[in-house]
Each structure stands twice: as C-alpha cells, then as structure tokens.
Design a protein around this nucleic acid. Structure first.
Lengths: 114, 114
DNA sequence: TTATTATGCAGTATTTATACTGCATGTCAA
DNA sequence: TTGACATGCAGTATAAATACTGCATAATAA
C-alpha cells in the first residue's frame, strides 16, 4: 500500500514540476511564504484563473499547502516531496554517475575506432 | 548565453521526467547500459514506434545518448542532466527545508487558534 | 449598505502529448 | 540473393494540458 501511494505521489510531483510556470511559483514561495493568489500570479503572464489551475496541480502533489485567512488564500511551500524525489530517485543516478560515464565513454571510443 | 542554454535544458529535462514510461526507461538503463531499442521497449506496454518518441524526448534532454552498431541502436544513460537539476534546483529547497516547515507549522497553528 | 477586492466555478477553444497503423529502409545471416 | 530482423518515417486519432472569458460568491472597507 505504502509503495503504491509513493508511486502515485511521485508521478504527481514530477508532473507538477514539468511546467516552468509552476516551478517559478515554487521559486517565489521559496523566497517568501504565505503569499496570496493575486500576489503569486504577478509577473506570470497568465490570468488569475489559469494560475489557480497550476496551483491545484501543485497542491495535489503536496508541494504547496494553502490556508484561508478571511477572503485571502495564503500559499506555503512544502519542500518534503522535492526531497523525497531527490532522495529516492535522483540520488541513485548520481551514485553510479562515474560508472555510467565511463561506460558511455568506452562505448563512444570503441565506436570511433571502427 | 550560458544561462539561457541552461534554462532551456532544464525545461527539457523536467518535461522528459514527467512521464513514468520515460523514467522507467532511465531506470532500466541505469541497471544495464548499451541496450537496444527492442530490448528497451520490452515490458513497457506500448508499441516500438511509440517508445521511439519517448526516446527522442530523452535524447533531446540529453538524458540518454545513442550509438549505432550496425542495424542496432544502442542506448546509454547520461546522468549529468539529473545531477544538474538536483544541484541547481532541488538542493536549494532542501537547504531551507527546516525554515519552510517551521513557517508552515506556525501558520497552521495560528490558524487553529482562531 | 454599497462598492471593492479576492477568489471560485463553468464552459470552451487551442495546443500539446501520446499511441496507433502501415509502409520504407538498411543490415545481417543462411 | 533472399528472408528475417532492427529500426525509421508519415499520417492520424484521441486524450490531456493549458489558457481564456464571463459570471458567482464571500469578505472587507468606506
């Protein structure tokens, strides 16, 4: 169960990170937390309603958490999923980075000598 | 120039990672390098021609490098873009992870007390 | 109360991504 | 040389992502 949950979550996180406008939102929340929707949209070259959709994607991936304060919706960054991705997926590639590059180089050289 | 190049590359890498079938391909190349197309498609629940498209996306992101050996196309993993992503984008979030979570918790608590 | 502000929701148009089929090409092995 | 194999290419159908407009609702401020 836990495994299935994680796979689904990872899928959502990777998908959420695929759009530059969403990464930009995360960048901004990284600098300043508790930002309202209107503030978050500024400089994003899209309507507020479109940004809402992007935020929903980020929320589903649990990359941001939101809180209502009166009529304002405040947005907070949750860095946990990013670290999960980094730890359980990306890291394993850098661990064998040297081996991968050597095998790649060897293949290239063998190919050149033919 | 360098900056623009990097932004474009990062965009492609994130997009390439967004599909689970492509991540699966990278996983398989991580285990075994120099795999042919036919071998790479096995167990992926799609036609060879569809997989070719996915591979093109991974190639554009420079996540894989290919070599022709006669009539076979051999695929090699290039872990460099993954490490770039990790280093220049993900890491900064984990650096401030503690701060982010504290600010998030505080906000949640303040909200509860109202 | 009334105007303004912050946001949500619904519907739609457009673009992008994905997967498929069918056929072409080049390599290898008998 | 011929048949099998590995792959590419083109065209098309479908699904998913994205952005827009217009209107609704609730909170705040005058």
């Amino acid at each position: 169960m836990q495994l299935i949950y994680c796979i689904i979550e990872m899928e959502q996180v990777f998908k959420a990170l695929a759009a530059s406008s969403r990464r930009k939102m995360l960048d901004r929340l990284h600098i300043k937390q508790g930002v309202t929707l209107s503030e978050l949209v500024e400089g994003l070259d899209m309507r507020r309603q479109s940004a809402t959709r992007h935020i929903a994607v980020l929320e589903q991936a649990e990359l941001i958490v939101t809180l209502w304060q009166g009529r304002e919706k405040l947005h907070y960054l949750n860095p946990v999923p990013l670290e999960e991705i980094s730890r359980r997926w990306l890291d394993k590639f850098s661990q064998n980075k040297a081996a991968a590059i050597i095998s790649l180089k060897q293949a290239l050289e063998e190919n050149n000598n033919e």
